[in-house]
């Protein structure tokens, strides 16, 4: 078993019936209820992780749940770095997971310069 939503009919709190919302995450359709956060929708669908870390390429999802850790960030309708645990899901939201590879750097100066010089046949020098 994994993360999931407590079935309303068994819930002593008796939540109201909320209208459904549907969003896509990396093209896959996921449905939830109006008022859920994006993280809520994803967790309720059994997804535990969605981001990939930059250095170790390992999976991350919710950690703090209250907007502090930024582990849960996703791209929402083109806006990057949206905390999924804070943003309520809107019908039609297009969610993309984030994996930001690190740019390489090296201590070899000449290498860079040469390749760039090659790119620039027309450059005055």
């Amino acid at each position: 078993m994994a993360s999931r939503m407590f079935p309303s009919r068994d819930d002593r709190i008796q939540p109201a019936e909320a209208p459904p919302v549907a969003l896509t995450i990396d093209g896959q359709r996921v449905s939830g209820l109006r008022g859920q956060t994006i993280a809520g929708v994803l967790l309720a669908s059994g997804r535990l992780s969605w981001r990939t870390t930059s250095a170790g390429a390992t999976p991350r999802g919710v950690f703090c749940g209250i907007g502090v850790c930024f582990d849960c960030i996703v791209t929402v309708n083109g806006d990057r770095d949206v905390r999924a645990c804070q943003r309520r899901a809107d019908d039609g939201d297009v969610i993309l997971t984030q994996y930001d590879d690190l740019p390489g750097h090296d201590d070899q100066p000449q290498h860079d310069e040469l390749t760039r010089r090659d790119e620039l046949p027309g450059a005055a020098s």
């Binding site: 201590d107 100066p109 000449q110 860079d112």
Partner: peptide, 9 residues
């Protein structure tokens, strides 16, 4: 720690 020297231009 690396000095991160780079002649990036």
């Amino acid at each position: 720690p690396s000095l991160e020297y780079e002649r990036k231009g």
